[in-house]
């Protein structure tokens, strides 16, 4: 059963949690929700998470989801921009090792005019871990002045790690500005050489590059304690895995 959460009209609220569950969230007119989630689970927990957010007129949803192995396997983040002027800025970081398997879907439904969606996902996968990523920007017929951006980037640290990406745009309106992109690759060898040429060891250079890769998203977390906690968890993962 999905938990119901409502952010009342005009309010600004921050929710930080360390185990993503099923949610249905309503962000009412003019309200803002900062929603930070770090996936850390007991093995017996439900390993699925579905988040559906309805964003009303001039309301905003800002989300950051961080997945660190042991995270739920199947995740969906669906943002419904229902009212005029609604917006979302929804990010995800996924880090996988061993045989960790993820399915992640990021969906932005533009159901009203003057709506803006920003979605960014970044992943680092090693060993035989895998990610099946789906991205969708869906724009309903008859709405106007829409801006939708979705970007997915992944770095593979082994030959056996896999990332499958299916970015999709479904546009039934004309007054739309949309971008989407995806890149999957290995660590930049020329950047590694540059750093090593300054005396930084290869493992340290790798860790620094990977940290920089995800910091771009972590640094956006507005709540300081959450930002520090999440960054520390990500650093712990990098130290253990690089």
């Amino acid at each position: 059963m999905a938990e119901e959460i409502r952010i009342d009209k005009g309010l600004t609220k921050t929710i930080t949690e360390f185990a993503p569950h099923h949610y249905h969230i309503e962000v009412e007119k003019g309200a803002t929700l900062y929603h930070y989630r770090l996936g850390k689970f007991n093995p017996k927990d439900d390993r699925n998470s579905e988040l559906i957010v309805d964003v009303a007129e001039n309301a905003k949803y800002v989300g950051c989801l961080v997945l660190l192995d042991d995270a739920p396997a199947n995740l969906k983040v669906q943002i419904n921009l229902k009212g005029k002027g609604a917006s979302c800025d929804s990010d995800a970081i996924y880090l996988g090792s061993g045989k960790q398997k993820y399915n992640l879907a990021l969906i932005a439904n533009h159901e009203a005019s003057d709506t803006v969606s920003l979605q960014k996902a970044k992943g680092i996968m090693k060993d035989a871990s895998s990610m099946d990523f789906q991205g969708l920007i869906n724009i309903k017929e008859g709405v106007a002045k829409i801006s939708g951006d979705q970007l997915h980037e992944a770095i593979l640290l082994s030959d056996t790690a896999k990332v499958k990406c299916a970015p999709e745009l479904a546009i039934a309106s004309e007054d739309v500005k949309c971008t989407h992109g995806s890149s999957i690759g290995m660590l930049d060898e020329s950047a590694l050489f540059y750093m090593e040429s300054r005396g930084i060891s290869k493992p340290e250079a790798k860790a620094l590059l990977l940290k920089a890769f995800v910091l771009e998203i972590l640094n956006k977390i507005a709540h300081e304690k959450t930002r520090d906690d999440f960054t520390a968890e990500v650093e712990k993962w990098l130290t253990k895995n690089i």
Binding site: Y194, M195, L209, A212, L215, E216
Partner: peptide, 12 residues
């Protein structure tokens, strides 16, 4: 080595 084209590193 002073590089001819130094790499750009986002995030550092």
């Amino acid at each position: 080595l002073g590089f001819q084209n130094p790499v750009e590193i986002e995030g550092i």
